[in-house]
Amino acid sequence: MKQSLIEQLRNGCIVSCQALEHEPLFGSNIMSAMAVAAEMGGAAAIRANTPKDIAAIKARCSLPVIGLYKKHYPDSDVYITPTIKEVEELVAAGSDFIALDATVQPRPNGQDFRGLLQEIRAAYPDVMLVADVSTYEEGVLAMELGVDLISTTMSGYTPYSPQREEPDIGLVERLAVLNRVPVLAEGRIWTVDEMLRCFEAGAFAVVVGTAITRPQEITKRFVKAILSRNFG
Rank of each mutant, 00 (worst) to 15 (best):
L63V: 02
R60M: 15
Y69F: 12
I66F: 00
I57N: 03
L63A: 03
A45I: 00
D53L: 05
I66H: 00
C61L: 14
A37C: 11
T50G: 10
P51L: 08
T50C: 07
K58T: 10
G67F: 01
E21M: 14
I54V: 03
E21L: 13
P64A: 03
A38S: 09
G42Y: 02
A37Q: 09
G41H: 01
E23G: 06
P51G: 08
I57T: 11
A55H: 09
Y73S: 00
R47N: 01
R60K: 15
R60N: 15
Q18R: 12
K52Y: 11
S28Y: 13
A56P: 02
L25Y: 12
V36I: 12
A38L: 03
P24H: 02
R47K: 02
G41A: 06
N29M: 13
A45V: 00
F26R: 06
A35W: 03
H22G: 14
A38D: 01
A55M: 06
M31Q: 10
V36C: 13
S62N: 15
I46T: 00
S62D: 15
L25F: 14
T50H: 04
M31F: 09
C17P: 07
A44C: 05
I46V: 04
T50S: 08
M40E: 15
S62A: 14
G41K: 04
A44P: 07
A35Q: 03
A43Y: 00
I57H: 05
K70N: 08
M31V: 12
A56K: 00
P24T: 07
R47F: 00
P74M: 04
Y73T: 00
G42M: 06
F26A: 13
R60A: 14
L63H: 01
S32P: 05
A48C: 15
G42T: 11
M40C: 13
K70L: 02
A35T: 08
A56Y: 02
A33R: 11
A48L: 06
F26M: 11
P24F: 10
P51F: 03
